[in-house]
Simulated scan of single mutants.
Amino acid sequence: MSDLIPVGAIAGAYGVRGELRIKSYCAVPEDIERYSPLWSEDRSRKFVVAILRPIKNGFAARIPEVATKEEADALRGTTLYAERSQLPSLPDDEFYHADLIGLEVYDTGGAHLGRVKSVQNHGADDLLEVQLAGSSVTVFLPFTKAAVPTVDLSAGRIVADPPLGTLPEQDSA
């Protein structure tokens, strides 16, 4: 497990005075400021984020080193990471998305289905994007207790019971 967890992203400049548009991935969006300082993925940059006010789809924020619109725009697309030790511990049945990516996926009969490529959320439940074993095909598996009864982080595996129609048809010949 990585010691860095993505908690947000810089969406670009907000105004002309170096303010940034920040998108939070946190369950409580305002908590992104609490986890400051935040890091770039390779830890080459450290960001002390101060939220100024809520705006549509995020927050207007300030980072001390950013003074101009051009500097803010240059950071567009930067994912912001918090150290795992800064984040709250989770109950047994909750997981950070970053911990699910890369886990091997097996069906309830023990057959290897593939590997978790990403975790998506488009407003409803989370979806695990699973790259099928020996293929470039990906499928989306609902991340619910019914479809994913077991997540074993220490073993690096998920046991899934994919709903009918989730997996491509298998040849029976």
Rank of each mutant, 00 (worst) to 15 (best):
L127P: 00
L127H: 06
L127K: 04
L128M: 04
L128T: 03
L128N: 01
L128W: 09
E129R: 04
V130T: 05
V130A: 01
Q131H: 05
L132C: 03
L132I: 09
L132K: 06
A133T: 12
A133L: 06
A133W: 14
G134D: 03
G134S: 02
G134N: 04
S135E: 09
S135N: 05
S136F: 11
V137A: 06
V137T: 15
V137I: 13
T138W: 08
T138E: 07
T138P: 00
F140H: 11
F140M: 02
F140L: 05
F140N: 07
L141M: 10
L141E: 09
P142L: 11
P142Y: 13
P142Q: 12
P142H: 13
P142G: 10
P142M: 11
F143G: 02
F143N: 10
F143D: 04
F143S: 03
F143C: 03
F143R: 02
F143P: 00
F143Q: 02
F143E: 00
F143V: 02
K145E: 14
K145N: 07
K145V: 14
A146K: 15
A146Y: 13
A146R: 15
A147F: 12
A147M: 06
A147P: 00
A147N: 05
A147V: 10
V148K: 08
V148C: 09
P149V: 13
P149N: 07
P149R: 13
T150Q: 13
T150H: 14
T150L: 11
V151N: 07
V151K: 07
V151F: 10
D152A: 06
D152L: 04
D152T: 08
D152E: 08
L153W: 14
L153T: 10
S154V: 13
S154H: 13
S154R: 13
A155Q: 15
A155T: 10
A155G: 04
A155S: 13
A155L: 14
G156W: 09
G156H: 09
G156Y: 15
G156L: 05
G156P: 02
R157E: 12
R157N: 05
R157H: 11
R157F: 12
I158P: 01
V159P: 00
V159I: 15
V159S: 02
V159E: 11
A160K: 04
A160R: 04
A160F: 10
A160G: 00
